[in-house]
Amino acid sequence: MTTNDVTEARGTDRRPPTLVFVHGTNSSSTLATGLISELTLRGHRAVAVDLPGHGRDAFYPRSYQAPQDLEGLATEPSPLSKITIDDYVEHVVDVVRRARRHGPVILAGASQGGVTVSRVGNAIPELLERVVYVAAYCCVDLPSLSAYLETPENAGSLLANVTGAIAADPAALGVARVNWRTADPERIDGIRECLAGGFTDRQMGHLLAMLEPDETAAIPLTEARGQAHTWGRIPRTYVRFTLDRLIPPALQDRFIAEADRLTPDNPTDVRSVAAPHVGPFDLPELVDIFAELAGR
């Protein structure tokens, strides 16, 4: 199938689509397990990918294990320091190409996963039926994720509650190393307030156990803008999380507005779910949204 064939086929290929889901920072496909399972049980094709250095390839420093060696945690090298956004994009492009052999592909990303979604959309717009941002960074006017952290719309973010748990200098190690295994109850409550407002202690324990300590530090600084002539051709949906304290709703709305100004003939399909930043992603209303998009 040629590029032109695929472009012409968007919206006309009657085979069921495959949802490809990209996780966010310090995370893995595990956080989307519930969503993928629910969609599969409803008869949809869905897969969550592990980006390079995550999931089965995640790195857990020896100093991260109990009893923790905090001095070692601040200095122990990480293989993720050599991973770049190009590695993420190459991996997801390969997954999309394989899935596209069997029908249309919907590419979704959560949080920092939105950077990868936009870059993949720039690279292979003809292979994507739709892109979906789930409380995700969707950079358009400003060049990088980090640039949006300085905007007025981000003023309500509680990101500092998480960065306060960073155990090493990202500039020195090349990774953002978060000590999710901290025993400090105030730190845990701060992380909960930022990422998981309303989670019970048991839910919070599960979340902290699933998160991974290391994330390549370069991603927030990388060029992340969707381009009008590539990414801008793809139908897109933005799922707003109205209880998000990491990416405030005001910043999510800015992403939507910027995208719509860039491509006025391709406006964003906007949905809203009353959820904190990490969902969970198997919330019935979120599953319903993806089931509807997959069933179009």
Score class of each variant (00 low, 15 high):
V6F: 09
G11W: 05
D13F: 07
P17Y: 01
T18R: 02
H23Y: 05
G24K: 07
T25M: 14
S27K: 05
L31G: 13
S37Q: 12
E38D: 15
L41P: 00
R42M: 09
H44F: 09
A46H: 11
H54N: 14
G55E: 02
A58D: 06
R62N: 03
S63T: 09
S63C: 11
Q68H: 07
E71M: 02
T75V: 07
T75R: 11
E76Y: 01
E76G: 00
S78D: 00
P79Y: 04
P79C: 04
P79V: 03
I83F: 07
I83L: 12
I83R: 03
D86M: 01
V95G: 03
V96E: 04
R97F: 01
H102L: 09
G103I: 05
L107N: 06
G109K: 07
G113D: 04
T116F: 04
V117S: 05
R119D: 04
P125Y: 02
P125K: 05
E126M: 02
V132H: 10
A136T: 04
Y137V: 13
P143H: 12
S144M: 08
E153P: 05
A155I: 02
G156S: 10
A160W: 12
N161D: 14
A171N: 12
A171R: 14
G174H: 02
G174I: 02
A176V: 11
N179I: 01
T182M: 03
A183C: 12
E193L: 15
E193P: 09
L195V: 12
F199Y: 15
D201R: 15
Q203M: 09
H206T: 11
H206Y: 11
L207E: 09
L208R: 10
D214K: 00
A217E: 03
I219Y: 03
P220H: 02
T222E: 15
T222W: 10
E223C: 05
R233D: 01
V239L: 13
R240G: 08
F241I: 07
F241Q: 12
L251V: 08
D253G: 06
D253S: 13
R254L: 14
I256T: 10
A259C: 08
D260Y: 01
R261A: 13
D265Y: 04
P267R: 09
A275D: 10
L283I: 11
L283W: 06
P284T: 14
L286F: 14
F290D: 02
F290W: 12
A294I: 10
